Amino acid sequence: MKTKLLPLAAALALALTGCSGPGPGAPEKGLDDPAKKDIAMRLVSSAENSTLDWEAQYGYIEDIGDGRGYTAGVIGFCSGTGDMLKVVERYTDARPGNALERFLPALRAVVGGDSHEGLGDAFAEAWARVADDPAFRRAQDAERDETYFDPAVSRAEADGLSALGQFVYYDAFVMHGYADAKGTVGFRTIRAEAVEAADPPSRGGDEEAYLDAFLDARVRAIRQEPSHSDASRVETAQRVFVHEGRLQLETPLVWKVYGESFRIDGP
């Protein structure tokens, strides 16, 4: 009997391992899982850099004309919002005398606006030149996690959200910041509007309904910013995942953002 059952068992095992989602009874994983976090980074990179290769973006830098000065690095740190300054300060703490240190006074002076004064091509070239320095990469990773990723995931977990909901919060943190700023609507206000419209799972609500409400609020926030009026980052990407029920970010993930198509087949 055992010799007849072994091929069937093997076939079942192969069938099960071919599924991308968790099997029955398997524990759900949040974005603190390395594979899920990598998917989140690729999703953000598709919107920020038009590529899934987020690890190639440490040296990226340009002014995209959104009123925030230079945008650079793995999640689009901005000279005008102050997180770029924090990256360079972290880098200088770890690597005194680095090529970006001399720009610290200028970076402090341009926070709150879109000025390039004291920066310019020399700064952009220096940023790109140090992109392969492990200390510079660690500085970007640390600022990303401390200011955006960790707070977003923590708030999402408190709201009872799955991996998809955690990503939805994280991407909102990246694009909008936590608090409202002049001419912008931050994550805090977006979430407050969502909670008014639907209960999160932590209050007994349906997760998909709540995420739809959150994305509705986010679209309104995007459309209040002239430089961010295109809401495809939500409507043809995150909203698609919600309606497909991919609450664990189960692959394959297929989406469009800013007119470009992307696909993730696995970790």
Rank of each mutant, 00 (worst) to 15 (best):
G204P: 02
V185H: 03
S232H: 13
E157I: 07
W54I: 00
T3K: 06
G76D: 01
S50H: 06
D114A: 12
G266E: 04
S202C: 09
D199V: 08
A231I: 13
R220K: 13
H243L: 11
K182Q: 10
V240D: 10
E235Y: 05
P27N: 09
R95S: 14
E28K: 15
F173V: 11
G183C: 08
T184H: 09
R144W: 03
Y210T: 04
D121G: 10
K36M: 13
P267V: 14
C78Q: 01
A158R: 06
A198R: 00
R108Y: 06
A126K: 07
V240S: 08
A156D: 01
A126C: 11
E235N: 14
T3D: 11
L100P: 03
F214L: 15
V111C: 09
A142T: 15
G113P: 08
S79H: 08
M41Q: 03
V242F: 14
A26F: 12
H228P: 05
L43Q: 00
P252H: 04
A217Y: 03
L104F: 07
S261Y: 07
V153P: 12
T3I: 11
R42W: 00
F77K: 02
W127I: 15
V254F: 00
A152C: 09
L8W: 15
P34C: 12
A72K: 01
D63G: 13
G82C: 14
M41K: 03
G245Y: 11
A198L: 08
R203P: 07
V111Y: 05
D199S: 14
A198C: 11
L161W: 13
P22E: 07
K37A: 06
A128M: 09
S229E: 13
A213D: 12
P34G: 11
V242Y: 10
R246F: 02
F187H: 04
A47G: 03
T71F: 05
D53S: 14
D53Y: 06
G18H: 10
A192I: 12
A35D: 07
R223M: 08
D114P: 06
R220D: 12
G18V: 05
E207Y: 10
A181E: 12
A26E: 13
D32H: 06
H176K: 13
Q57P: 01
R102T: 04
D199L: 06
E244M: 12
E117F: 15
A13V: 09
V254K: 01
G118V: 11
A192G: 06
A209L: 15
T251S: 03
A106L: 06
G177C: 14
G30D: 12
T236Y: 11
V195P: 09
P7E: 06
H176E: 10
R129W: 15
G183I: 13
Y170Q: 04
C78H: 05
Y148A: 06
